[in-house]
């Protein structure tokens, strides 16, 4: 449905997108992932014919963005980062206007306006002036505007940015429910969003394509290391971290023990073993034999965030990236 080949976009002083190639099949939801300034918006603007590519090509539904922009535009619904609303218009009036410039007329137009009003849950504000709507409503009107002409492809630039958690969930659900009829590309820098909504991920950083894969594959890729997190506690007095570490290292099959956090009576270790499954039993027995409590034992986290950070950051400063991922997670409200 979407094919991008060696796409490059240069501005006067920098290269925003550098030889990116990817394809998106019909009906998929693809997450377009990257830190701020990675080139997500630029790529989307090329796909929507807002910006011409410097070199390379992009096509939507078989139409090239440079050769047949009008055909491409007919098949694309686009929600820019800030919804393009005429703030002095009323909701239904605005949607009618957008429907008209997208080529709808008469009964068909009225039908589609009513449909998107319901679909995006903005029917209750259809006579309100857009400038007076809350951010969540504006975003949904923006989505309604993007799907009004029933486009094959939906391009959504950070559709959940600036919404509160409830609105974020509603918007994600809405996007997911649109997936059947439309091919969707959504950009974001919030990783759980991709895990929750998308089937396919395209990660870019500094204008370069870093990875393109399914969400499952990417998660599996990072799981390969097979490390385990354990949290132990002592019933009588503080634990000696060094002693605990030494004891755990003695367990058969353990190759490395990394202290993670230590708080009064709790110690957390990340333990790497030759074989993830085999060491767990021995670990538990060793911990119990030593007279400690086992509070937690789980597979070390494999969120997309860590994969993302691994892929976008040089792996040298590991500790810092771990910290970043923790703050990111807090910021994303997870």
């Amino acid at each position: 449905m979407i094919a991008v080949r060696n796409l490059t976009k240069k501005y006067a002083h920098n290269v925003a997108v550098d030889r990116i190639s990817f394809e998106v099949a019909k009906g998929q939801i693809v997450g377009f992932l990257g830190p701020n300034g990675a080139g997500k918006t630029t790529t989307m603007r090329v796909l929507t014919c807002f910006l011409p590519p410097t070199s390379g090509s992009a096509s939507v539904a078989g139409f090239d963005v440079l050769e047949q922009p009008i055909e491409v535009k007919r098949r694309i619904g686009y929600l820019p980062e800030t919804p393009p609303l005429y703030l002095e218009m009323r909701t239904s009036e605005y949607l009618t206007f957008v429907g008209k410039i997208k080529g709808l007329r008469g009964a068909e137009l009225a039908k589609r306006v009513n449909y998107v009003l319901e679909r995006c849950a903005v029917a209750d504000v259809k006579d309100r002036v857009l400038g007076k709507l809350s951010k969540g409503y504006r975003q949904r009107v923006g989505l309604a505007q993007a799907i009004i002409h029933n486009p094959d492809v939906l391009i959504l630039d950070e559709p959940t940015a600036g919404l509160d958690p409830k609105q974020i969930n509603e918007t994600r659900d809405l996007i997911k429910s649109l997936a059947g009829d439309h091919t969707i590309i959504l950009s974001t820098h919030i990783l759980p969003e991709v895990e929750q909504t998308c089937q396919q991920v395209i990660i870019i950083n500094k204008g370069k394509l870093v990875a393109t894969d399914s969400v499952n594959n990417l998660q599996n890729r990072a799981r390969g290391a097979g490390s385990v997190l354990v949290e132990i506690a002592s019933r009588n007095g503080p634990l000696d971290p060094a002693a605990a570490k030494n004891r755990l290292e003695l367990v058969l099959g353990v190759t490395r023990v990394l202290p993670r956090t230590s708080r009064a009576n709790f110690l957390t270790f990340e333990i790497e073993g030759k074989n993830d499954l085999a060491i767990r039993g021995d670990l538990v027995r060793a911990i119990v034999a030593a007279g400690w409590d086992l509070n937690e034992l789980r597979t070390a986290s494999v969120s997309l965030e860590e994969i993302f950070l691994q892929l976008t950051n040089p792996p040298t400063d590991n500790s810092e990236s771990k910290q970043n991922s923790a703050t990111d997670r807090a910021a994303a409200g997870v």
Partner: peptide, 14 residues
């Protein structure tokens, strides 16, 4: 300023 130019330019109008 409002970004609505993006809507006009990405719509199938000349």
């Amino acid at each position: 300023r409002n970004g609505t130019i993006e809507l006009l330019v990405t719509s199938p109008v000349h």
